[in-house]
Simulated scan of single mutants.
Amino acid sequence: MVVAAVFYALYAVCIKFSSMEGIGSFEVLFYRSFFGLIIFYVMMRMQHITVYTTHPIDHMIRSFVGAGAVMAGIYSISHLNVGLAMTLNYTSPLFIGCFTIGILIFQHKGINWKLLSTLVLGFLGVTVMLSPTITPEEYFPAGVGLAAGFCTAVATTYVKRLGLMKEPELRILFYFVLVGTICGLVGTVFTGGFTMPTSVAAMAIIGFVLCSTCAQFFLTRAFSRGNLVLSGALQYTVILFSTLMGMFVFGDSVSSAVVGGMVMIVVAGILASYFVRQETHKAIEERKHTEEGLQRHLRHKEARDH
């Protein structure tokens, strides 16, 4: 997970360089997605996984929302300090916590006050981090960065939903990068077409394409083979790495308020992930208990009938 965080930080640095060289956000989305489209299609063919799916609507929602998250992340990185943008992009656990609170209220199960207080801490951290550091011109990119966190949270819920439907991970990724490629291509055409990259831009494009692919590989490996709680906590090291790289590469300034806000968001994100996992485990146990009770009732009914 730490290696994945390093690659994601390098990915952000490469995007920043490409934007400085005139490469638009839609172009970045296209290059990143098209490379992934080739890689994942080849991997699907090697594993004899077809592109046919019985859940096209769920794939469509996950893919468009996921592409929106990537696009929003690219835009915020291009217009804000690298560390600041990456911190906003990693607010998805806070939004997932909000979804969980909403579900608990809808099901009349009460409010998890620990989770709620954690979410308040996290969004207070966003306010502390942004209020003294950004100019009015950066309000919109900051809002887009938060939107990236929200879209990531929505996309994550659909990834889990598709996983429960036994959809192969490669097929989920394939449709995601397919939609990203189409959106990036259409967006680029309607915003002036492709820019002839300079030598620096070409290196940046190669860099963010390779770094995003490597980061996704190590991220998947960490979550599939490692401890989920530890992996979820360590993924926030990307904020540390991206902040340091922004300072040394681009000369980004980091105030005590920014550091304090980042710490609040990281702590809140880790705690929110933990409390959401607790609620999920509790819901599974309740469902299992209900099913066992129903089975016992049916057995007793059959015994009485005999």
Rank of each mutant, 00 (worst) to 15 (best):
G68K: 05
T87Q: 07
L164M: 12
A268M: 07
M43E: 11
L173Q: 05
I103T: 04
R62F: 09
L88Y: 12
K16A: 12
G110W: 06
S63K: 02
G149P: 08
I74V: 11
G83C: 01
V209P: 01
T188Q: 05
L84F: 10
F17L: 14
S224F: 10
S242H: 09
Q295K: 15
A9K: 05
V2S: 13
M245C: 09
T127Q: 05
M203H: 10
I111P: 12
G68S: 08
I105T: 07
A222E: 03
G73E: 07
V186Y: 06
A268C: 11
A85H: 02
A155T: 09
M44K: 08
P197N: 10
G143S: 03
I49N: 08
Y41F: 12
T198A: 09
S231N: 00
V254D: 07
G226M: 10
K114Y: 13
F35A: 15
A12K: 04
L240D: 10
A67S: 15
V65W: 01
L10Y: 02
L210K: 09
G251I: 10
A9L: 01
V3I: 12
A12R: 07
L240R: 07
G246H: 00
G226R: 07
V258L: 15
S33H: 02
F40W: 06
V229S: 12
P168N: 14
T237S: 13
V267F: 08
E286I: 02
T191Q: 11
G187Y: 05
F223S: 09
